[in-house]
């Protein structure tokens, strides 16, 4: 059995299949494709891929449904492919267990970045997760709760720290508003996006060099936030 990571692409459009297969094979991945949801579920069960790339608009079943059925038995990372303006579907799929998303049309750099993050998270689930996260000049020590920019320590409030810790622990992944609110605040606060907006702005002012052009905490419009750390 080869060691190259195995990626299952479930998308009904042959052109997309061809493009993704060409690019990923070139980069050293093993690629299997399926053009229908049922077929994809069967292939996922028999091949046990390392990553599933799933298009939300499938001819036979809803992509969110495929996501839910995959999550019944596997924790393998799922990357959603979808067109613009379907934020609702994307958020639904992410909340049903998908790990990340890509909006069509996407650049190849984006695709590879998502795949890398997904692979790292699938391995870190089994192994130990790093406790000190570096992002540019920022150092976040999740064990000692110390945040430094260069040598200077940054003071955070309790909520700000909880928020940053959750983002940093999941660095590279998109986190929906709901998942952040549920994890940092309380499941009962899942609809209070304003908490998130206000605290996020505070946090950016303390961490970012230019809060208007954040380098670490990126806004994913209509979806959530993503923390960018060094690979």
């Amino acid at each position: 059995m080869s060691n190259e990571p195995h990626i299952l692409v479930i998308d009904d459009e042959p052109q997309i299949q061809r493009a993704i297969r060409t690019i990923l094979t070139e980069k050293g991945f093993k690629v299997t494709t399926a053009s229908r949801g049922e077929e994809g579920l069967t292939l996922a069960a028999t091949n046990e891929p390392d990553i599933v790339i799933l298009d939300l608009g499938l001819p036979d079943m809803d992509g969110v449904e495929v996501c839910t059925r995959l999550r019944e038995w596997t924790q393998c990372p799922i990357i959603i492919l979808s067109v613009r303006d379907s934020e609702r579907d994307k958020v639904a799929a992410l909340d049903k267990g998908a790990d990340d998303y890509l909006t069509k049309p996407f650049g190849i750099e984006e695709l590879l970045a998502r795949v890398r993050v997904a692979l790292r998270h699938s391995t870190s689930k089994q192994g130990t997760q790093s406790k000190v996260i570096k992002a540019g000049t920022l150092t976040i020590d999740l064990v000692w709760h110390i945040i430094k920019r260069g040598e200077e320590e940054i003071k955070l409030t309790a909520t700000e720290y909880k928020l940053l810790a959750y983002l940093a622990a999941n660095h590279g992944r998109v986190l929906t508003h709901q998942s952040i609110l549920t994890n940092v605040w309380d499941p009962a606060d899942a609809n209070h996006t304003e908490y998130l907006r206000v605290y996020m702005r505070q946090l950016r002012k303390k961490l970012e060099v230019d809060p208007e052009r954040p380098q670490f905490i990126l806004t994913e419009p209509g979806i959530g936030y993503r923390f960018i750390a060094d690979e």
């Binding site: 996006t193 304003e194 907006r197 206000v198 702005r201 809060p211 052009r213 806004t219 209509g222």
Partner: peptide
């Protein structure tokens, strides 16, 4: 899809992107 948002944040991110 309305939510309570911070207007300076929206303006800031747009202008940063359009720089």
């Amino acid at each position: 899809k309305r939510e309570w948002n911070i207007l300076p944040e929206i303006v800031g991110s747009v202008l940063a992107r359009m720089k």
